[in-house]
Simulated scan of single mutants.
Amino acid sequence: MAMILVADDEPDVAALFADVLTSAGHTVHTAPDGPTALERIADLRPDLSVLDHYMPEMTGLQVAQQLRADPATSSLPLLMVSASAPPTALLYCNVVLAKPVPLAHFRMVVQDLLRQEPNETLHDLDRVRAVARLLDLHTDRIAGRLNELAEQVATEAGAAMAAVNMVLIDAVAVCGAYGLGGWIEQAGGIPAEWAPCTRVVREGEGILIDDLGEDQAFAGTPLATVTKVRSYAGVPLRDAAGHIVGAVNVMDRTPAAFDKDTLNRLLARTASVQEIVQS
């Protein structure tokens, strides 16, 4: 099983998490503060680290930032569990959970993170920073222009839906959309594992999915079961420096609705999207 480092300044909480993980067969070490967590991670090379946010000397966010900046730990799965995690935590941690967290859910999230294979592109710190900069620039005016462009892209591709997404480590922000389900637009984004555009970022190239309902990774997600998306086509969206920050996508409720010509149409639109998101 895995070796896990739990960093929390509350001994009872650290002991509780350690008991839960030990009972699942893992070896668990604890740290009472940020500097100690960094030291033990460097010495032990754990498979995953659980971080509180407010800890003495260094916050969990500062610990995560240092880990992502170090090539030796940049792909270490990080789970932040905190009563008051900052919004930027998702830029550096794979998953953020709020305290108090149901222990069964905590254990399940840990198991899911341990099963994931680190992806150098998705976790690249420069890429994540580039996404953060663009999201900081995002305004209602930019969103309006991207919504209009998404409608044009959908029309050109003969698609029911289109979206411009920014992809963080564990979440996807919907920056512009046309025809998507109201729950997605109201939320402003979805978990990365639900979104085919995460695969676009990981692979660094355009992808086609003929039927999400038959794709093992997406068949059970709300995108397939609630919004009823079947066909998907998406291409990488890059910033001016060449970082893959997200994707331009079209979707439809009919299987096999797209082909390579669709990808070429989307690629032709990425320059316009780049101009808008950086304006």
Rank of each mutant, 00 (worst) to 15 (best):
F17L: 09
V20S: 07
L21A: 02
S23P: 09
S23T: 15
T27Q: 13
T27N: 09
T36Q: 11
I41Q: 06
D52F: 11
Y54P: 12
P56V: 12
A64I: 09
S74N: 13
V81W: 05
T88C: 13
C93S: 06
V95L: 10
A98Y: 13
L114S: 01
H123I: 09
D126W: 12
D126V: 09
R127P: 00
R129Y: 09
A130H: 03
V131R: 00
D136Y: 14
D136E: 14
L137G: 10
E148M: 10
L149I: 01
A159T: 00
A159N: 05
A159S: 06
V174W: 06
G181M: 06
G182T: 08
I184Q: 04
Q186A: 13
A187C: 07
A192I: 00
E193G: 11
R199A: 03
L208P: 01
D210S: 13
D210K: 13
E214M: 14
Q216V: 15
A217I: 07
L223M: 07
T225E: 07
A233D: 01
R238H: 12
D239E: 01
H243G: 00
V245L: 02
M251V: 02
P255F: 05
D261K: 15
N264S: 13
A268L: 11
Q274C: 08
I276Y: 04
